[in-house]
Design a protein around this nucleic acid. Structure first.
Length: 663
RNA sequence: UGGCCUAUGGUGUAACUGGCAACACGUUGGUUUUUGGUACCAAAGAGUCUAGGUUCGAGCCCUAGUGGGCCAACCA
């Protein structure tokens, strides 16, 4: 087997290293640990793809573990939705587990920590505790209850568990280090009182463990070998390890937490809290609204599990922040649907076409290919008659030769039917075209530039089509410190259209996906009834014609991340390229450097004087900057004179020229 | 007055661990086409944040800087 070396991502690398350092392949075990407080979204798919993908690759078990330690936010509805979505994506878990399964064990371990003097009951207000905790840049201080006796701690903890106290009166904290540089290590909370019914344990407990106390210990109990999570948990790793240190038996497998960058998609948001807000405020019609980046939203929109998995595979795994362009997601779904979706004709924005030389009562049924990408897809019959609908966009009275569609005097092919020629138009009082009159010819062998889709008016079915645009008009709506993400909502994200579709769609079933030829991919929405067909537009076809057309209502191009670089850094960025630039660019760069140099000090430039000889670009931009400083009254010193002198002897003509100006 | 993470074409990820910066999306041309789709061909686009160092050789190692991110919930 000559297997091509596939480059491993850093997580696969870690696992391979562990394996070659003696870990048994049988010890490999992963988990996906969602909190059941919302629906899964496309961002979760990455985490799912990583852990379940690893499971598939190594043939290792993957647990689905619901991290249900906060009854105030969690619901059974979410548990069910999460399971459904993972199944739909095509992944198989080994066991379904719940953090709440471990409440008793966690409690016993907490008792052990108290007895060892490693945990204590704090009885202050959360404000007081926050104050003692310090800030990221300032150490914390010990609180007054930090040195309570073991006996007292034990008694209070028992009372917490017995429901003696109200929420907020007492909590259990680990006793670590209030001065620790990592805030999470400053005596983190392990237990708090919550008087809410839990969706699984009911009212058995009124104390609930916190995430950090729960997560590592749950991984340990399940013998998870690699506990993979997103980057924002990196600071938790130290605490994760500290908690494990307290209870791990050195002869058993110790789980390892590793972190990867989460997935961000342009023009949408990935925060469950914010998605919930969209649902609750009625901006969208529920978690499965086709505009939502949730799995259920994408499913309803017509995405396939294959496309989503392909997408996640394509984006890769690394540790730097990223914003992936939606066009990649769209590519993945088009690629799948192109091969599988039956083609069909539908007119979304109709204009009436009358074939004047076609008999009034006549109808013909033509064969139409179901899918040119699939030889086995076969043919269907489509009806043709004197009166048709075509897209309003497909006709113009006059147009340039670049316009391949129908214009007066021009010829065009009707897909699966005849070639027609437009003769004249009928208009209403406003000058709007109401009918296009044309004549057909039976000779279909002729070559014409354009082919149009159409439907026969007497045979057409009415259908509702929902067309979606991005939910936000900004590429990164929740990355603005000064503006709320809601300010970027796209008011036109949903467009409902009354369309006409060919009669073969009469018995279309919910969930079925079609290509409306020349328009895009559409699927049959859940809201479809026997009386009314409803389609969702999944994604449009790639449209190179749309780019040629003068753009009408183009969305803001995404703004580049603004860099708050100091001027000298900005100047330096020209250095590498400067002597390779074409002249006009060079002049522009020079002007910019001179402008920036106004805000540069001698101390900024001085370190650049000993730039190595071969980096002439950097030396040139340094020379230009220096020129500005000298002009602004800087006195020449020895270092400056030496730098200029050395430059005068250089081979690079540009550098010499700049140096001569200052010499 | 801190700790940690991070920096490679427009975007995302690679570079066999120090040896010709590659792949995908996107973009631009072209061929084919009864979808301005698909498929196919081609091109443009980065010299790897900056400077210094080690080395015959650095995207990769070392030092210093700069940009970006995360950390102060009785959330996960």
């Amino acid at each position: 087997m000559s297997e091509e070396r596939k480059s491993l991502n850093f997580i696969e690398q870690i696992i391979e290293d562990d394996l070659s350092n003696g870990m048994s392949k049988d010890d490999l075990r992963f988990r996906f640990p969602p909190e059941p407080n919302g629906y899964l979204h496309i961002g979760h798919t990455k985490a799912i793809g990583i852990s379940f993908g690893l499971g598939e690759y190594y043939n290792a078990p993957v647990n689905l573990r619901f991290d249900d330690t906060n009854p105030a936010k969690e619901e059974q509805e979410y548990v069910d939705a999460i399971k459904r979505d993972i199944k739909w994506l095509g992944y198989e878990w080994d066991k379904v587990l719940f953090s709440s399964d471990y409440f008793q064990q966690l409690y016993e371990w907490a008792l052990q920590l108290i007895k060892e003097g490693k945990a204590y009951i704090d009885s202050q207000s959360s404000e007081a505790m926050a104050e003692q905790k310090g800030t990221p840049t300032q150490p914390g201080i010990d609180g007054p209850y930090r040195n309570r006796s073991v006996a007292e701690n034990l008694e209070l903890f028992q009372q917490m568990k017995d429901g003696v106290f109200n929420e907020g009166e007492h909590i259990l904290r680990a006793k670590i280090d209030m001065q620790h540089p990592n805030m999470l290590m400053r005596d983190p909370i392990m237990y708090r009182v919550i008087n809410k019914e839990h969706h699984r344990t009911g009212n058995d407990w009124c104390i609930y463990p916190m995430y950090d106390w729960t997560h590592g210990e749950s991984d340990y109990l399940e013998r998870i070998s690699h506990s993979l999570c997103s980057l924002e948990f990196k600071p938790h790793r130290e605490l994760y390890n500290w908690f494990l240190d307290q209870i791990v038996d050195p002869n058993t497998l110790r789980p390892k937490q590793r972190e990867f960058a989460r997935l961000n998609l342009s023009y949408t948001i990935m925060s469950k809290r914010k998605l919930l807000q969209l649902v609750e405020e009625g901006i969208v019609n529920g978690w499965d609204d086709p505009r939502m980046p949730t799995i259920s939203g994408l499913r309803r929109r017509g995405y396939t599990p294959y496309a989503i998995r392909k997408f996640v595979e394509t984006v890769g795994v690394a540790k730097r922040d990223n914003i992936i362009d939606v066009s990649l997601l769209e590519f993945c779904i088009r690629e799948d649907l192109n091969k599988t979706a039956p083609r069909v004709m539908a007119v979304l924005d109709p204009i009436k076409l009358v074939i004047t030389n076609y008999p009034e009562a006549k109808e013909e049924w033509f064969d139409a290919e179901n899918n040119p990408e699939d030889e086995n897809a076969g043919f269907r019959k489509v009806p043709f008659s004197k009166n048709l609908y075509i897209e309003r966009d497909d006709f113009k009275e006059e147009a340039s030769t670049k316009f391949f569609r129908l214009k007066l005097g021009g010829e065009v092919r009707l897909k699966n039917a005849y070639i027609i020629k437009a003769d004249h138009v009928e208009k209403d009082a406003n000058g709007t075209i109401t009918e296009v009159h044309c004549t057909y010819s039976e000779d279909t062998s002729k070559k014409v530039k354009g082919t149009l889709h159409w439907v026969s008016i007497p045979h057409a079915l009415k259908a509702t089509v929902q067309e979606y645009d991005r939910l936000f008009i900004d590429a990164a709506p929740d990355s603005h410190q000064d503006k709320d993400f809601m300010a970027f909502l796209n008011p036109k994200s949903l467009k409902t259209i009354e369309a006409y579709v060919e009669p073969s769609l009469k018995d279309a079933k919910i969930g079925e996906r079609y290509q409306f030829q020349r328009l895009g991919y559409f699927n049959v929405d859940d809201a479809t009834t026997a009386e009314n067909l409803v389609f969702n537009k999944t994604v449009g076809l790639r449209d190179t014609w749309a780019k040629v057309k003068p753009k009408q209502n183009e969305n803001q191009p995404k703004q580049p991340q603004q860099n708050n670089r100091p001027p000298i850094e900005h100047i330096k960025s020209f250095g590498k390229k400067y002597d390779r630039m074409p002249e006009d660019k060079q002049a522009k760069a020079k002007a910019e450097i001179i402008e920036l140099a106004q805000h540069v000090s001698y101390d900024d430039v001085a370190p650049l004087f000993n730039t190595s000889v071969k980096k002439s670009g950097t030396r040139i931009i340094t020379m230009i900057t220096l020129g500005v400083l000298l002009k602004n009254g800087l006195e020449k010193n020895e270092a400056i004179t030496a730098f200029i002198a050395k430059a005068l002897e250089d081979k690079n003509a540009l550098l010499v020229a700049e140096a001569k100006v200052l010499a």
